[in-house]
């Protein structure tokens, strides 16, 4: 047994001295809301806004419309940069239509208000994103979902193009569904 014991102790020493240098392998674990916030942030990075976008010194605003839990998760990206602008998180806790932002995240309980405001929003350079299939079917541009414990997204490309946005082809090939 002595050689085996020596080998085991050597293996112990080696294992403890190993540094994490190799490529990552196992799946990373992420909380649902954090994952959704990060995916929306990434989609915004891969989207080109129409020319009438706000000036470059203005903040890049994500508006969370009466969704405090998701807004909390968005705090992690506050202050980061996208399209050369600082990200700001706007919590809108009123039922009025959020304007003056680049991305609006619409929860299920704002569906009726969204339907009423849809035409008005279509005329603005605002990317409409939701985590609810009902809202996506009602005309939101991007749907974020969790399917089989993985994040996925679908894009209503017709609505996206109608509002003057362009979404990178590299991003679209990861989409679960692209509605033309």
């Amino acid at each position: 047994m002595q050689p085996i014991k020596k080998c085991l102790l050597l293996a112990l020493g080696l294992s403890l001295s190993m540094s994490p240098v190799s490529a990552s392998n196992d799946r990373r674990v992420i909380e649902e809301n954090q994952g959704k916030a990060l995916l929306i942030y990434n989609i915004a990075k891969f989207t080109v806004w129409p020319p009438e976008m706000a000036p470059t010194d203005a903040p890049f605003i994500f508006t969370l419309w009466n969704d405090e839990a998701l807004a909390d998760a968005f705090q992690m990206i506050e202050g980061l940069e996208t399209h050369g602008r600082k990200v700001r998180i706007n919590r809108q806790n009123e039922d009025s239509i959020p304007v003056g932002c680049e991305v609006i995240i619409i929860p299920n309980h704002q569906l009726q208000l969204f339907i009423k405001a849809r035409d008005e929003l279509d005329d603005m350079p605002i990317l409409t994103v939701t985590t609810e299939p009902n809202v996506f079917e009602a005309g939101a541009m991007v749907l974020i979902e969790v399917v089989d414990d993985r994040l996925s997204f679908s894009v209503n490309l017709g609505a996206v193009k109608a509002s003057g946005f362009e979404i990178s082809g590299n991003l679209l090939r990861h989409a679960k569904e692209v509605n033309l």
Partner: peptide, 19 residues
């Protein structure tokens, strides 16, 4: 926040207990 899109889409998503 610096996680790649590929890693993000491959990540295992767990329920957010905060909400």
């Amino acid at each position: 926040a610096n996680i790649s899109l590929g890693d993000l889409l491959n990540a295992k998503i767990i329920r957010s207990h905060s909400n």
